[in-house]
């Protein structure tokens, strides 16, 4: 845990230093903790710092959600992306953009729509895959994939019937990225993900018991059914908001909890927190790549997480086989 926190600090400073304009670590610390009102200080405070915070919390949330879902379904391949939850969330968000519904609540409408889309998907997937008291994993993953297809088709449909102006809005959002500068939204996401992290820690002993399966956890006096429902709501809340803000970012929720499982073991009291920190670190690192590789342009961050994540995953898998 201490190692992860240290790593996080180093990553954040590195992310602050590296970019189109480079800073030395000393200068970063000076600007952050001292004063300085020139352009360089402004770039750091108003552009780079919010972006890094967003990376931390979006990455952390996605990874946390992945860890929770993997615990509930007892399957390592489950994550918001593979279950179609991200897809469901993105349909919600697209609806809002295309039909200009954001005038109601401002920027939070997108997040809310994402949440509703995600929650609807998670419930649908769960009930399709449930038979009696057990979840059929193949059905679960297949349903997830199908929902992702349907979701992207629905998005295409909406994009094709809308006008160019809104089309651009959808495109801009789908490309994703952490270049959100709305501080209210960033504060909201930060607080919410911290809250849910805290709540999920209360459920860590329950998730621990669920490693034995739902029925056996129930035999041990855990109200597994109710816990699953609560965790579903929070997972969709996190996924919905992450997708609404940063677009589709895959793989974080899959790889990071996996990686952490190998490093810290399967005790969810430790696993949840390390997944959160690990996810944050990973997404900030990916964002550095996204900014630097084709500088001064930017790559969509989902592309970077996909490529880096996939490669890490394959490396880890082959190492474990040995």
């Amino acid at each position: 845990m201490a190692v992860l926190l240290l790593l996080l600090a180093v990553t954040i400073i590195a992310a602050l230093c590296i970019g189109e304009v480079n800073y030395s670590p000393q200068e970063v610390l000076q600007i952050l903790f001292g004063d300085g009102n020139d352009v360089r200080a402004d770039i750091l405070r108003k552009l780079r710092l919010p972006r890094i915070l967003l990376g931390l919390f979006v990455g952390g949330s996605l990874s946390l959600t992945g860890a929770i879902l993997q615990g509930i379904f007892r399957n390592p391949l489950v994550e918001p992306y593979t279950l179609g939850i991200s897809g469901g969330a993105s349909v919600g968000v697209t609806l809002v953009i295309v039909f200009s519904l954001e005038m109601f609540w401002g920027s939070l409408t997108l997040a809310f729509a994402g949440f509703i889309g995600a929650l609807a998907t998670i419930i649908l997937v769960y009930f399709v895959a449930m038979r009696g008291n057990s979840v059929r994993i193949q059905t679960l993953l297949l349903t997830g994939v199908m929902i992702s297809f349907v979701a992207s088709s629905l998005m295409m449909l909406m994009m094709s019937i809308t006008d160019a102006d809104k089309l651009q809005g959808v495109m801009f959002w789908t490309m994703g990225g952490l270049n959100e500068t709305n501080t209210t939204l960033i504060t909201f996401i930060s607080l919410l993900s911290l809250c849910i992290l805290l709540i999920s820690l209360f459920y860590a002993p329950v998730l621990n018991a669920m490693r034995l399966g739902l029925e056996r956890a129930t035999q041990l006096g855990v109200n597994a059914e109710r816990s699953v429902k609560v965790l579903f709501v929070f997972s969709s809340l996190l996924t919905g908001i992450c997708v609404a803000t940063a677009g589709m970012i895959g793989f974080v929720g899959l790889i990071i909890p996996q990686l952490m499982r190998y490093i810290v073991g399967t005790d969810y009291r430790i696993l949840l927190l390390s997944s959160f920190l690990g996810g944050g670190i990973f997404l900030i690192l990916c964002d550095i790549f996204a900014r630097v590789i084709v500088s001064p342009n930017e790559l969509p961050i989902g592309v970077v997480t996909g490529i880096i994540g996939g490669i890490i995953f394959i490396i880890v898998m082959t190492k474990i086989k040995k």
């Binding site: 002993p205 621990n208 018991a209 034995l212 041990l220 006096g221 855990v222 005790d267």
Partner: peptide
């Protein structure tokens, strides 16, 4: 850890 799970009803 497995045996300790028997304490869950008392948590």
């Amino acid at each position: 850890d497995y045996v300790l799970m028997g304490r869950l009803p008392y948590r």
